[in-house]
């Protein structure tokens, strides 16, 4: 199939940036979206141009590196998938596709479609862990039974891949779903209880410091999340933060 691509080009964080139009021909419906981008870049390089920079790595939907805003949606029109798992059979011959980077003050553009998501790392560093040193002398793994439903729910929250689609898709560029997923994972496990309040408080503070927007409960993040993390995580964080606030002396 033949496609027209409108791609965002921006040479560094301070550049103004603009849309650029390219056409690609002979795209196979079996290609992944990124393979189509490879094809575009191959074409650009052979013609002596500057290829489109974009982030990608595992290409199987788990590393969270790929990040394209396709036709007005984070990771494109399909649900439950990342850009690398989006296949060209989701488009029609002759389509015009717009491709933009994640846009948020907390995700400055590195180049073209690649953005800097280190703000997410700093949020995790603020408290997204359980403080336990490596020793090999912790409790036996089966010492604390955890009810299966609770373990499953913690797992569901823990499947977040940190891609940033929630921020990209939120009209306020809020990072609530990302932060809440980590807060929830540990809040649901017995191991996470000792630091529960402190964790929620610190991670929210860091989130605010990074310049993410505020949550207005539109629910767009949960719809676009490739891992299907749901809004109950955000409610849990709201609760935990509230109780952390009340408890504080």
């Amino acid at each position: 199939m033949d496609l027209t691509l409108k791609v965002w080009r921006q040479n560094g964080p301070t550049d103004q940036g603009k849309m650029e139009t390219h056409s690609v021909t002979g795209v196979s419906p079996d290609m992944s979206f990124l393979e189509m981008m490879d094809m575009l870049n191959d074409q650009i390089i052979r013609a002596g141009g500057d290829p489109v920079a974009f982030d990608h790595d595992c290409r199987e939907g788990i590393c969270g590196m790929c990040s394209m805003f396709i036709n007005g949606e984070a990771h494109g029109p399909s649900r439950g998938v990342t850009t690398c798992q989006l296949h060209m059979r989701s488009f029609k011959d002759g389509d015009t596709i717009t491709i933009e980077p994640w846009r948020a003050a907390a995700f400055p553009v590195v180049k073209d479609l690649a953005v800097d998501r280190s703000s997410f790392d700093r949020v995790i560093q603020a408290g997204g862990y359980i403080s336990v040193n490596t020793s090999g002398e912790t409790l036996d793994a089966n010492a604390i039974p955890i009810p299966k439903p609770q373990a499953d729910e913690a797992f569901n929250a823990a499947t977040c891949i940190g891609c940033g689609a929630c921020v990209a898709t939120c009209k306020n560029a809020s990072a609530m779903l990302f932060v809440a997923a980590k807060v929830s994972q540990f809040a649901l496990l017995p191991q996470g209880q000792p630091e529960r309040s402190k964790r929620a408080k610190r991670m929210v503070e860091q989130m605010d410091k990074e310049g993410f927007g505020n949550c207005t409960n539109t629910g767009a993040c949960a719809v676009e999340c490739p891992k299907g993390i749901d809004l109950s995580t955000i409610a849990r964080m709201n609760r935990d933060y509230l109780s952390a606030t009340v408890k504080e002396d």
Binding site: K6, W8, G17, M19, F69, N71, G72, E73, P77, T98, E100, R103, A104, A105, A106, T169, K171, N172, A173, S174, G211, F212, G213, N214, T216, T218, G219, A220, V223, E224
Partner: peptide, 18 residues
């Protein structure tokens, strides 16, 4: 919230998810 996204999308399809 405005400040959190200084450059807006050229194509944003909010109706798809909210």
């Amino acid at each position: 919230n405005r400040k959190a996204r200084p450059v807006g999308y050229v194509n944003e399809k909010g109706s798809a998810n909210s």
